[in-house]
Design a protein around this nucleic acid. Structure first.
Length: 267
DNA sequence: TATAGTGTTATCGG
DNA sequence: ACCGATAACACTAT
């Protein structure tokens, strides 16, 4: 679920409700979510400290801790979300995203947790368990954030590869934050086929693509997630292009299910 | 019961 | 070594 807009929302939850509170307990017992750490390692590193700032690049978050403590890296994977609750277990922030029937206090999918001095908790809830919590994450491997990338860098990442442009847009080492749904929206808005070799795009197409990238991210953050983007509701059989009413086509590009307008995004 | 899925990464072939 | 495609990961929803 989470692409850049959802991760930004999660980062904002931590910033609003998780900073400057003394950590008195840490549940890092899920050794899959906390790989490669062993249980207790993250706990020992954080006990007694506070979180001091929450950062994000692309789909990766990291949180600084006080007293020269470690950096706590959080990745939401396919299904993760951050929720902050009070001592009674009532959710005070983060509970609005992708509820999917989950009730407050349902801890079946809680994979990691911090408990603060007043009993409040910061939780990572992640049914599919493909998310990750780790100390001192290697953030520097990521490409520039898709929200803030500059035209020269954007142009360079496209003209140096014959891979399908969609695959290039989803390469987190080159541009960070674009996932499957955001990519489909961006390519649809720019009227470019997802399968086009990236290095064949002309300068007009590249500038349309960058404008569409910025607009999609802005709209998704404002609307509450990538599922609110225009073409996302039309990624299904029998659906038609919301602009020209031609049939939507489906296929695999860059290893992911891809939908595009059969008329406006023809090769 | 079988399959697809909003992400990442190890592995394989070119 | 680089590049791109694919499978695997864990688990739920349809």
């Amino acid at each position: 679920m989470p692409e850049l807009p959802e991760v930004e929302s999660a980062r904002a939850v931590i910033e609003r409700a998780g900073l400057h509170r003394t950590i008195v307990d840490v549940d890092d017992s899920d050794s899959y979510e906390c790989r490669p750490h062993s249980p207790g390692q993250i706990r020992t590193a954080l006990l007694g400290r506070t979180l001091t700032a929450a950062h994000r690049r692309g789909k990766s978050m990291w949180v600084d801790s006080s007293d020269a403590g470690p950096v706590l890296g959080i990745h939401l994977g396919m299904s993760g979300k951050i929720v902050i609750g009070d001592a009674e277990g009532t959710e005070v922030d983060g509970g609005d995203y992708w509820e999917r029937g989950r009730q407050a206090g349902d801890h079946r999918f809680t994979r990691f947790g911090l408990t603060f001095e007043d009993g409040g908790r910061l939780l990572l809830i992640d049914p599919r368990r493909l998310g990750r919590v780790r100390l001192d994450p290697p953030v520097e491997k990521l490409g520039p954030d898709a929200q803030f990338i500059k035209p020269p860098a954007f142009r360079a990442l496209l003209e140096t590869s014959a891979a399908p442009v969609k695959a290039r847009l989803m390469d987190q080492d080159r541009i960070a934050g674009i996932g499957n749904l955001l990519a489909d929206q961006i390519l649809w808005a720019a009227r470019i086929s997802p399968a086009r070799p990236a290095d064949e795009l002309d300068s007009d197409e590249v500038s349309r693509l960058l404008r569409a990238t910025r607009a999609a991210i802005r709209d998704a953050i404002a609307g509450g997630g990538v599922h609110t983007l225009k073409v996302v509701a039309h990624r299904k059989k029998v659906a038609r292009c919301p602009r020209c009413k031609a049939e939507m086509s489906q296929g695999t590009v860059g290893g992911r299910t891809t939908w595009w307008c059969s008329r406006e995004q023809a090769q």
